[in-house]
């Protein structure tokens, strides 16, 4: 059984393409300028692991990290 996942948006890399928010709104949110950050502490609830990786693999700026705890 794999460990729990965490997502994190690198604020220096994010340019607000908003692909993550569109693909995984449970895990990502946007600020008033449309730049992304992870929801809460970035912990990925069970069942949303695929969405975390999908968001990561669609970020044009490679700004999303997915780590296993």
């Amino acid at each position: 059984m794999a460990g729990k996942l965490k997502v994190r948006v690198d604020q220096d890399k994010c340019q607000g393409h908003a692909r993550c928010k569109s693909l995984a709104p449970e895990l990502f949110d946007l600020d008033e300028f449309g730049n992304a950050h992870e929801v809460g502490d970035g912990s990925v609830p069970e069942g949303l692991e695929d969405k975390a990786y999908l968001a990561q693999s669609n970020c044009p700026e490679i700004a999303i990290e997915v780590t296993e705890e």
Binding site: Q15, G16, H17, A18, G34, S57, N58, P60
Partner: peptide, 19 residues
Amino acid sequence: KENRHAAFGLGIHRCVGSN
């Protein structure tokens, strides 16, 4: 499924109107 396309640019000039 995996599509990091650059139609709206890359870097600081990312299209303001992309949404």
